[in-house]
Amino acid sequence: MLELIGVSRYIAQLQESELGTPLVRFEPLDRAAVRVIASTLTQGCMNGAPQLGVAMWSEGMRCVGEVIGRNGATVRLRALADGREWRSAPDDLRIARVQEVHAALKVHPTQ
Rank of each mutant, 00 (worst) to 15 (best):
G6R: 06
R9I: 13
Y10N: 13
I11L: 10
A12R: 13
A12M: 13
E18D: 15
L19T: 14
G20S: 01
P22W: 07
L23P: 06
V24N: 06
E27F: 01
P28A: 12
L29E: 02
A33C: 00
A38H: 11
A38Y: 06
S39D: 02
Q43K: 13
Q43M: 12
G44Y: 02
C45V: 15
C45K: 09
G48T: 15
A49F: 12
L52F: 08
G53C: 12
M56G: 09
S58Y: 10
G60L: 14
M61D: 12
M61A: 15
C63A: 13
V64N: 02
V64H: 08
G65E: 06
G65K: 02
E66S: 12
I68Y: 03
N71P: 08
N71A: 10
A73G: 04
T74W: 05
V75P: 07
L80Y: 04
A81S: 10
D82C: 01
R84C: 09
R84L: 11
S88R: 08
A89L: 12
D91V: 09
D92W: 03
D92K: 02
L93V: 04
A96K: 01
V98I: 10
E100W: 07
L105G: 01
L105Y: 00
H108W: 07
P109A: 01
T110M: 15
Q111Y: 14
